[in-house]
Write a protein that binds this DNA or RNA. Structure first.
Length: 201
DNA sequence: ATTACGATCCACT
DNA sequence: GTGGATCGTAATG
């Protein structure tokens, strides 16, 4: 069952709990379900990399609302990414859904992701993930506890690894985000880095 | 009104 | 491993 209180905590606590969870979206042409294998936490006002770092705007207002809802955004002129809103209303944090394994509706997912060479590529990467599931920008603000969505957390989350982006700030304790969590060894974990490496001088 | 740039993906080398 | 695509958002004049 869906327990909204599971999301009323900072994204950094919710993120590892989402690993192994099954997210389903029903559409007119069928349903696709994905087992979440990689996520990334964005810590709102505390995180310079978060869309909510500079306060509430029209674009990010969903992040400041009820937890357990979907926050979608459009980027790079062509891609949509999806987050699960965390923290109580008035506080912004979210978990970016970065990768998953398609476990239901794989033919439908394949038809949506014609450039995928292998099934592991169907939902590997945040923009691919939303395409495979049939999520669009218009799903922003949708309640994950209500159709067409279903989200089921694992009772016992799987073991996970965590990666840290450093160098955001030189100060001790504040240079440890955003956090990225994944299921070790899973072939559907995305190979992309949180930030393109800077060219050396 | 204008501008700079990004929580990325894909084709190509 | 690298560069180009492509446009909404938010900061600035």
């Amino acid at each position: 069952m869906f327990d909204r209180t599971a999301f009323e905590r900072p994204a950094i606590e919710v993120a590892p709990r989402l690993l192994g969870a099954i997210l389903t979206k029903h559409s007119s042409d069928g349903a696709v379900s994905v087992r979440i294998t990689e996520v990334e936490a964005y810590l709102g006002a505390l995180d310079p990399g978060s869309h909510a770092f500079r306060g509430q705007t029209k674009r990010n207002s969903i992040m400041f609302g009820e937890p357990g809802f979907l926050y979608t955004y459009f980027t790079y002129g062509m891609h949509v990414c999806a987050n699960v809103v965390c923290s109580p209303p008035g506080t912004a944090s979210a978990v970016l859904l970065r990768a998953g394994e398609v476990v239901e509706g794989i033919d439908l997912a394949r038809s949506r992701r014609l450039t995928s060479k292998t099934d592991a590529d169907l939902a590997r990467g945040p923009a691919r993930f939303v395409v495979a599931l049939g999520i669009t920008l218009g799903d922003g603000g949708a309640d994950l506890a209500a159709l067409p969505f279903e989200l089921t957390l694992e009772d016992i989350p799987p073991d996970f690894d965590a990666g840290v982006r450093t160098g955001v700030s030189g100060d001790g304790g504040t240079d440890a985000y955003p956090w990225r969590f994944w299921i070790p060894g899973d072939p559907t974990v995305s190979p992309y880095k949180a930030h393109a490496p800077k060219k050396r001088a």
